[in-house]
Design a protein around this nucleic acid. Structure first.
Lengths: 146, 146
DNA sequence: CAACAATATTTGTCATAGCAAATATATTAA
DNA sequence: TTAATATATTTGCTATGACAAATATTGTTG
């Protein structure tokens, strides 16, 4: 006998919402004439906080695996927004730095992203945010532990 | 003057959580010896509720665009889980049906998915679910309308 | 030191996703 | 009816993401 018969298909809601969010980011970047993807923005944002960290650290901070980070950094380097520098201490590592163009781009994108974040949370309160974080963290740890 | 200075980076939480959810689904399918991906499951699930719908309808129900649906159905057909049948009314359309193998697979996957859904919501209440849906819907409509 | 294990990154392959364009068919308008 | 338009699907291209394996380097252990 199944006790809790009604299961919650929360994944579909998150999937739907996150797809729309990413699409909105893409549109907003396009409108602002910024040639960058949402995921590239995620790494630029990490670098703006800790410039010079390794690809490994970038991956940990953004929940991306090593190959994905490697390829996104490839693209960012091609666009001239970041540069790789070999670590003097550990020659397996690369330190990733924002170039001056990368810093300029970051400054240009930041207000666009802040607008999107504000707009996305419109009609919701700080208490809602605490609920949101609590629920997300609970789901995360439900799956993480096992 | 920026009034609401503190913006909420809710996207990162959702991104992190949904990645873990998908990974758990993948692992669970593997452990149950079910050769299927999470996104393939999404379409099987739609078909189990409305067998014979078009790819277009499948896409609307799952927030996937037409090319993505087309390719996932290709794979499901290759695996023998679905079949395409030309619509007699409108020869542009295909009706997609679960094969008997597809139905068997669905029945095999369903309890695994229900376990995952229950496990994912562990420690959370039905009220939490209502909060969750409310917040997701609000974010969605914040972006949808504009 | 030599062998082995661990770590950081890269490369290859496949699945998913978005976008644009091609194709086929259906609908509407002139 | 023909021409223009709209719809359903497919195909090509690129980005992201997961996984496995290859490579380079570092750390550990005998």
């Amino acid at each position: 006998m199944q006790k809790n018969k009604e299961t919650k298909n929360f994944g579909a809601y998150m999937d739907r919402t996150i797809k729309l969010i990413k699409w909105k980011y893409t549109q907003a970047f396009k409108e602002a004439n910024i040639d960058i993807t949402t995921e590239q923005w995620v790494l630029l944002d990490s670098l703006s906080q800790k410039d010079g960290i390794s690809q490994n650290e970038l991956g940990n901070g953004s929940f991306k695996n090593a190959p994905t980070v490697s390829r996104i950094i490839d693209l960012l380097c091609k666009k001239g927004l970041t540069k790789r520098e070999p670590s003097p201490n550990d020659r397996r590592k690369h330190h990733i730095f924002l170039t001056s163009k990368g810093k300029k781009t970051y400054q240009k994108v930041l207000p666009v992203v802040e607008d999107l974040r504000r707009k996305g949370w419109n009609g919701l309160t700080h208490e809602d945010y605490q609920q949101f974080i609590r629920i997300m963290d609970q789901i995360f740890s439900n799956f993480e532990e096992s």
